[in-house]
């Protein structure tokens, strides 16, 4: 249920980073498995929080980050299938392993419409989506 708070915090961060009038196209966020965040709930909260605003059509791209463990005894690092207690034993016999990832909650990028040179008169919504920085 904290997805709405997360969505609002994300919008706050973007207003500061990109500016409230920025013509956003999409936003990328990495979510660790330990954060207890449900992706579809966050999508819903994102849409609800932005409904009726200039950002209501901005796409939210979620990148899940798996729970990662490191065994201090044998040095093995692995990603268990689930973030649960019964997944923490290392095959070398050492228990427990130490967490080495999975608690991320990071804004990775935001994508803005590429400004079109004045006088071109083309669709100003064109973007260079997917070209990378």
């Amino acid at each position: 249920m904290h997805e709405l708070s997360i969505a609002e915090a994300l919008i706050d961060l973007l207003r500061r980073r990109a500016g409230p009038e920025a013509k956003l196209v999409s936003v990328g966020v990495r979510i660790g498995a330990l954060q207890g965040i449900d992706g579809s709930c966050l999508q819903f909260a994102w849409q609800a929080a932005l409904a009726g605003t200039n950002w209501q059509d901005v796409r939210l791209d979620l990148e899940p980050a798996p729970w990662t463990l490191h065994c201090p005894a044998c040095g093995r690092t692995w990603q268990p299938a689930a973030a649960t207690a019964d997944q923490t034993a290392c095959p070398c016999g050492h228990t427990p392993a130490t967490p080495a990832g999975g608690d991320e909650l990071d804004l990775l990028f935001y994508e803005v419409q590429t400004p079109v040179a004045s006088g071109v008169g083309e669709d100003v919504c064109a973007s260079t989506k997917g070209d990378g920085p």
Binding site: I6, A9, L10, D12, L13, R16, R17, A18, V29, L105, D106, L107, L108, F109, Y110, E111, V112, Q113, T114, S127, T128, K129, D131, G132, P133
Partner: peptide, 14 residues
């Protein structure tokens, strides 16, 4: 145009 950031979403809270 993608702008890379990598910043904790809860930065303001923190």
């Amino acid at each position: 145009m993608k702008v890379p950031v990598v910043e904790n979403v809860l930065k303001l809270n923190d």
